[in-house]
Each structure stands twice: as structure tokens, then as C-alpha cells.
Design a protein around this nucleic acid. Structure first.
Length: 268
DNA sequence: AATTCGCCCAACCGCCCCAAC
DNA sequence: TGTTGGGGCGGTTGGGCGAAT
């Protein structure tokens, strides 16, 4: 026996949303906020599935959506993030304010894939198309990073592993090395995240402001979202890209409490 | 003018994860 | 500890629309 359907399919509308439906949804969310998607349609007087309402709001009606054409800067950021994270569209979208995962996914499939192919780059591996026997040490330096931090095919459960959950002696040694590095960083090791991953100043300030006490993220799943961001922090960390070691996070990615800096801002 | 083709993107589907019980 | 329900995600679909024939 499978799971019960998320809604009563027989009594729900499907397909394109009407203006009236949009208005009802917007009005309801303005009054009551997001959440409880399952009960929302009935409460809002909509003959729609809760999931459909959620999608409509997130992908189309949310007031903070940017819409419009992607800039060249956004293109480059998406390509770079995709090379690091693979098809983790929601993670990538978290790095592009005002863009949704669906929008980025569509844009990737319709434009960026082609763009990369026209440059002779395989959009899946981000390696040259002609390369028959990929050698990670001689190609894209990002891909050549330690495999432990290649999340492109990692199941979500792997994201849940915490830095404090280390078990092996090797990892403990690396933690020790990291502490030494943090305590005595040499000159020039203040790494520039904008350079390493192309994050705009605006985004960087949003991210750093999210660390302040008054803007602590309200997380439905603390560990998961926290570690998602931690992963992006790792990806953003130039010392990781340079292959310093799987447990080493540079000071730009770790705050004084030993936690990662990159939280999802409240409004993203 | 009519038809076909290809592209784009909003929306749907099925699955997964996790908190609550 | 196992089960269930809600939310979220990535892959896929299909309708609209403009270009080409």
C-alpha cells in the first residue's frame, strides 16, 4: 500500500493559475504567512493541492522575486556553483537572491547547458568534451578537489554529517591542524570569497548580516539547512578549492564558535 | 494563410527526509 | 523504535508562442 495522496485529486484544479486564484493565495499568505500548505487551500478558498499552492507562491507570487533576464555575472555564478554542487538547484538558488530553484533549473537546461557545450565543455562534468579519460588532477581545479567534498552526487543524508561527528584519527588530526591554522594564519590567507566563487558584494553582505543575533535564521530543520550552508561555505572556501584537506575550513568560513558562517538569510 | 517545428517555462509528479507521535 | 504526515527537491511534462516552411 502506497502513501495517501497529498490532496483529494478529484476536487482540485490543475494547470495554469487564474488571476483570481493568485489573488486569493497572495491575500491569504499576507494575512497568515507561509506554511501549513496542506490546509491552506481550504482555508484560502482555493480548489488546489497544497503543493501546487506552495509552488505557485515560491516560484511566481513571492514579492522578492527578481524575474527578468539573467546577467552574465549570474550565469558565471550558476556555472561555478553547478560545477561544485551538481543539480542541487535549491542550494544554487540560495546563492542567487530573487531567483528560484525552478527558474535556475529551467535556465540551466535551456541556456547554460548549450552555452557550455558551445565552449566545448561537458555541462555535467564541467570538463572538456573531447576528454575521453578524465583525469581530475589535470582538469578543472575545482573538480580536482578532494572527492570527500564533491557533493554532486551526494545523497542528502550525507549532508547531515557534522564536523563534530568525526570518528577517525585522521579526521581528529586534521581538526588539530585546522586549529593551528586558525590560531596562526599567515599573511595573505584572508581569503577573498568573492574571488573564489564570484559572490557579489550584495550577497556577501546579506550572508554576513545573517550571522548577527537579531537575524538568526528560523530553521525548520536546523541541522539540515545549517549544514547545507556549511557545504556551500566549504565550496566557497578557497582553501578547500586548493585542496588543503577535507576537514579544514578557513577562517572566512568558520566563526569563533566553530560554526560555519554561511547561514541562509531569513528572507531567502 | 496554414501548418509544423522547436523553444521556453510554469506546473506537476514521485520520491525523499525528518519531525512528531 | 516504527509509523505517519508535511514539506521540500529534482526530473519531467505539456501548453503557449514565435519562427520557419
Amino acid at each position: 500500500m502506497g502513501r495517501s495522496p497529498c490532496c483529494e485529486k478529484a476536487h482540485t484544479n490543475k494547470g495554469a493559475w487564474t488571476k483570481d486564484e493568485d489573488q486569493r493565495l497572495v491575500d491569504y499568505i499576507r494575512l497568515h504567512g507561509e506554511g501549513c500548505w496542506r490546509s491552506l487551500p481550504k482555508a484560502a478558498g482555493l480548489l488546489r493541492c497544497g503543493k501546487s499552492c506552495r509552488l505557485r507562491w515560491i516560484n511566481y507570487l513571492r514579492p522578492d522575486l527578481k524575474r527578468g533576464n539573467f546577467t552574465e555575472e549570474e550565469d558565471q555564478l550558476i556555472i561555478k556553483l553547478h560545477s561544485l554542487l551538481g543539480n542541487k538547484w535549491s542550494l544554487i538558488a540560495g546563492r542567487l537572491p530573487g531567483r528560484t530553484d525552478n527558474e535556475i533549473k529551467n535556465y540551466w537546461n535551456t541556456h547554460l547547458k548549450r552555452k557550455l557545450i558551445s565552449r566545448g565543455i561537458d555541462p555535467q562534468t564541467h570538463r572538456p568534451l573531447k576528454e575521453t579519460a578524465p583525469n581530475p588532477t589535470t582538469t578543472n581545479p575545482i573538480i580536482a578537489a578532494p572527492t570527500e567534498l564533491d557533493f554532486r552526487n551526494a545523497p542528502k543524508s550525507d549532508f547531515m554529517k557534522t564536523p563534530s561527528g568525526m570518528t577517525t584519527d585522521e579526521e581528529q588530526q586534521q581538526l588539530h591542524k585546522k586549529k593551528q591554522y586558525d590560531d596562526n594564519p599567515s599573511d595573505g590567507e584572508e581569503l577573498n570569497l568573492e574571488l573564489s566563487i564570484g559572490i557579489t558584494s550584495a550577497v556577501s553582505s546579506r550572508v554576513s548580516s545573517a550571522n548577527s543575533a537579531e537575524s538568526k535564521p528560523k530553521l525548520q530543520n536546523n541541522n539540515f539547512q545549517f549544514l547545507e550552508q556549511a557545504m556551500v561555505a566549504k565550496a566557497a572556501c578557497l582553501c578547500w578549492q586548493l585542496g588543503f584537506g577535507r576537514s579544514e575550513i578557513c577562517r572566512n568560513c568558520r566563526n569563533s564558535n566553530g560554526f560555519y558562517r554561511f547561514y541562509r538569510p531569513l528572507d531567502s
